[in-house]
Design a protein around this nucleic acid. Structure first.
Lengths: 167, 167
DNA sequence: TATTGTTATACTCTATAACTATA
DNA sequence: TATAGTTATAGAGTATAACAATA
C-alpha cells in the first residue's frame, strides 16, 4: 500500500505528544470550570457559544452538527438537554420545514455571560501565560494552515451520515 | 477577586479556537484509526505506548494514572480491559506489596506494532503535512513552555485522590 | 429519492465513595 | 495514618440503525 518511512522524526513526535498533552490538560481544566460554574459540558458550551456569536442567535441543527458534534443523534441529545434547561429553543425553520432552528434564550445568554470570564481566565492562565504576544501570533500562524488543511481534507471522520459524493 | 480585563484579545481567542479545533479533529481521526486497526481507544493506546516505551515494559499503576488517566478507578477499568485482551499483565510489585506492576505482553507489543504505522500516517497527513521542518521546530518551541507551565501548575485538575500537601 | 431530524438502543468511558491491604 | 488499588454504582456522552416528515 505504502512504502513511505513509517515513523515521524523525533521533533515531530515530540511536538505531537506535547500538543496532545497540552490540549488534554487544557480541555480538562476548562471542562471542570464549565461544570462547576455553569453545569455545562464542553460540547454544550460550544453550542451555546456558537449560538451566542450568531447575529440572530440561531443556527440550524445541521450547521451546529457540522461544527461541534460528530453525529446527528448526538446533537439531538445535547440540544434536548439545553432545551430542557431553557437555555435554547427549537422551532421548525420557516423556509425549510424539515429543518429545525435552534435559538439561544435570554437565560442561555445569561449563563454564557456567567461562565465566560472564568473560562477565559483558565485559558489565559494555562495556555497564554508562558507566551508573549509575538509567541501567540507565531502559534496562530502555525495553526491556521493546519486548521485549513484539516478542514479541507476530512480524512474519513465526520461523515455524520453520507455527504455529497460518495461511492 | 480579580479586576483584570475579562477577555482575551482577538489573536489569543482565535489561537485558542484553532487549537481546540485542530486537536479535536486530529484526535477524532486518530481514534478512528486505532479503533479500526486495533480495536483500541486512545487511552488504551497511550497506556500500551507508555509501557512499550519503558525499558522494562512495565510501570506501576500509579505512574500510569498520573500520566494518562484522571482517576484511579478509570485506570483500573482500562487496565482490566487490556488484561482481558491479553495485551498486558498485572502483578504485585516486588518492592512494595501495595503496588501493582503492569507489564506489556508480546501480544501487546505485536498489536502496538500493528497499529503504529497507521497512527503515524494519520498524524503526519493531518498535522504535519502543511508544516515545514522549521515550522515544526517553531511549534515545538512554543508548546514546550506551555507544557512545562501546565505540568508545574496543576490548576486544580487531576488530584485523583489527594496529593502531597493539601488543606 | 435525498435530506432533516428524532428515537431507541447499546455501549464506552469516567468519576465518587466505600472497601481491602500494605507501609 | 497514609498510600495503592479494586469494586460497585451511577451518570454522561456517543454512535448506529430504524423511523417519520418534508424537498
Amino acid at each position: 500500500m505504502s512504502d513511505s518511512p513509517p515513523s515521524l522524526d523525533p521533533v515531530q513526535l515530540g511536538t505531537y505528544f506535547d500538543l496532545i498533552e497540552v490540549t488534554s490538560l487544557l480541555r480538562h481544566a476548562v471542562e471542570q470550570q464549565l461544570r462547576e460554574t455553569g453545569d455545562l459540558s464542553y460540547v454544550q458550551f460550544q453550542l451555546l457559544a456558537r449560538l451566542g456569536d450568531s447575529p440572530t442567535g440561531s443556527h440550524r441543527m445541521t450547521d451546529l452538527a457540522d461544527g461541534v458534534v460528530y453525529s446527528r443523534s448526538g446533537l439531538t441529545y445535547q440540544a434536548g438537554l439545553l432545551e430542557k434547561a431553557a437555555l435554547v429553543v427549537r422551532a421548525p425553520s420557516s423556509d425549510d420545514e424539515r429543518s429545525v432552528t435552534v435559538t439561544i434564550t435570554d437565560a442561555g445568554r445569561t449563563l454564557l455571560a456567567k461562565v465566560l470570564p472564568g473560562h477565559i481566565e483558565v485559558v489565559r492562565g494555562l495556555l497564554f501565560e508562558p507566551l508573549s504576544h509575538d509567541d501567540v501570533k507565531a502559534l496562530a500562524s502555525l495553526l491556521a494552515p493546519v486548521r485549513d488543511h484539516m478542514r479541507s481534507a476530512p480524512p474519513r471522520s465526520a461523515a455524520p451520515r453520507r455527504r455529497k459524493g460518495d461511492a
